[in-house]
Amino acid sequence: MKTFVLGGGCFWCLDAVYQKTQGVSSVVSGYAGGHVRNPGYYEVCSGTTGHAEVVAVTFDENVIPEEIILDMFFALHDPTTLNRQGYDVGTQYRSVMFYATQEEKDLFEKAIARNQPLWSKEIVTEVSRLPEFHEAESIHQNYYAKFPEQGYCQVIINPKLAKARKYYSSWLRA
């Protein structure tokens, strides 16, 4: 099993897709990259903690290649916008990949290079050493499954799920 810690805007979006991905055994929403110990959601949303909203995606690389996990990451958000995803603005919504090993760092940098031709602007995804990971409050875990009718889920997450189904249908569970 392997775990990648990735941030691409609101963690609910990445969580929703990776929860439906074959070979993924767990997705934990959380916060990483900041200077405050044990931050809470409202602190992180204030933009004052330095943390990004992230997901820790644990998967079996014998079932789903790590390249697919990373290519999905680049398809699910706009990695060319600095510190924003749509209406979510601030460093807490930055595009970021946190590595634990040099091998992961190299893999992440290769994923950026592989995905760059798909974008007309430069990818600005940050690649940083994994600091302490703080698990988000329970309400944020598997959010889409709990609240599929909520407005944010309908307007923001559903189109991302549709895009994932279009390009990665063979890797997604119903």
Results as ranks from 00 to 15, higher is better:
residue 91 T to P: 13
residue 135 E to L: 08
residue 114 R to T: 13
residue 167 Y to E: 15
residue 152 Y to A: 00
residue 172 L to E: 09
residue 90 G to S: 08
residue 151 G to P: 12
residue 173 R to C: 13
residue 90 G to V: 03
residue 14 L to T: 01
residue 136 A to H: 06
residue 35 H to L: 10
residue 144 Y to P: 00
residue 171 W to K: 04
residue 49 T to L: 00
residue 149 E to V: 06
residue 103 E to H: 10
residue 36 V to H: 11
residue 53 E to N: 01
residue 86 G to H: 06
residue 75 A to W: 01
residue 20 K to W: 05
residue 1 M to F: 13
residue 7 G to R: 00
residue 76 L to H: 02
residue 118 L to Y: 11
residue 51 H to V: 05
residue 47 G to C: 06
residue 65 P to G: 15
residue 72 M to W: 03
residue 110 K to N: 12
residue 42 Y to E: 07
residue 139 I to H: 02
residue 163 K to S: 07
residue 109 E to L: 15
residue 12 W to N: 00
residue 164 A to V: 09
residue 8 G to Y: 01
residue 1 M to A: 13
residue 170 S to V: 08
residue 148 P to Q: 07
residue 110 K to L: 09
residue 90 G to K: 05
residue 24 V to M: 04
residue 96 V to L: 07
residue 157 I to P: 02
residue 132 E to V: 14
residue 20 K to L: 05
residue 124 V to T: 11
residue 53 E to F: 00
residue 105 K to I: 10
residue 19 Q to D: 02
residue 111 A to S: 07
residue 26 S to K: 15
residue 111 A to E: 05
residue 91 T to A: 14
residue 38 N to H: 13
residue 131 P to H: 12
residue 90 G to T: 05
residue 130 L to D: 12
residue 11 F to W: 01
residue 94 R to C: 07
residue 98 F to W: 10
residue 45 C to E: 04
residue 97 M to L: 04
residue 122 E to C: 11
residue 138 S to C: 10
residue 106 D to T: 14
residue 70 L to E: 10
residue 7 G to Y: 03
residue 63 V to I: 15
residue 169 S to F: 11
residue 127 V to D: 04
residue 157 I to E: 03
residue 43 E to K: 08
residue 91 T to K: 14
residue 158 N to S: 14
residue 164 A to W: 12
residue 53 E to T: 01
residue 70 L to V: 11
residue 61 E to R: 09
